[in-house]
Design a protein around this nucleic acid. Sequence first.
DNA 1: CGATATTGCTCAGTATGCTGACTATCAGTA
DNA 2: TACTGATAGTCAGCATACTGAGCAATATCG
Lengths: 151, 151
Amino acid sequence: MKDNNDMPGHLARRFQQIAVAVFLAEVGDVGFDLTPVQYAALATIKANPGLDQVTLAGLIAYDRTTITGVIDRLVQKGLIERRASPRDRRARELEITDEGRRTLRKITPAVESAQRIMLRGLSAKEGEELMRLLRKAIAAGNELSRAPLRE
Amino acid sequence: MKDNNDMPGHLARRFQQIAVAVFLAEVGDVGFDLTPVQYAALATIKANPGLDQVTLAGLIAYDRTTITGVIDRLVQKGLIERRASPRDRRARELEITDEGRRTLRKITPAVESAQRIMLRGLSAKEGEELMRLLRKAIAAGNELSRAPLRE
DNA sequence: CGATATTGCTCAGTATGCTGACTATCAGTA
DNA sequence: TACTGATAGTCAGCATACTGAGCAATATCG
């Protein structure tokens, strides 16, 4: 019987678990209540003003049914606005608010610190190598999940 | 602004997302409906007959509040039995059933195939290196999540 | 022995993620 | 233009994960 530690799937779960915990702790320490998922969505909306939900989902590889709730919560927190698109009445355009911008600015150091902490067991070179290998494996498996990356 | 692809946390999420999808697809293809989490719990119960829930949680790094539901579903599927411990009336002893054993045996090839597929973009050497780096990062971050590994 | 702390487990509540189904709308074509 | 297919979004339902609270039972220590 293979050990859990020889299963990339198990290791993936463990690493993600730690990554989320570190992110929440760092962001919480500076007084904000934002999840990794909400952060990625907010940052992507800021970088792509007026984008619709499907495009956003493709840019960060979220399922379209997941993104609904994430956006609900960002709207509820006053960090973004959701309004009907004038060009396509099915679509919703997303825009970051001033408060969203302020929040992003304030938590950026905590987010960066979180990324360092979750790699703290590795040397700089090893951290780079881990990210390179993850990127490569992810690229090869992109189409295997329901929420692939779309550029 | 850092790109998502430079964020280990984001890469962790993506890799895990793919890993789960591949696992479910492979196991589903041979006619079983078992999640990665349920599989790990089942295999660990088989390897450690009569263990209690807290010990199980520690061995696979699950939160104790998560394991309750996982065990409920394994019991409901008839794969394990949960009974009160004679030594400690707070604890529940877990035991795999014959059907649990049969299920494990039948899905093992699918589980192994899933592990290969999620690394299909990498050479054998790269796959080994990815697992080594993940293990190292996880070891250093073990205490940072609410559900650390306990041996 | 008795008060206190700790432990095993559960529950309510919240937030991802997914499957599958549905509505509304848009796009392409006969 | 009417039909057909595809697309944007939502919803119900299920399965992780976690926070925080609580109960029952055990362990520990004065």
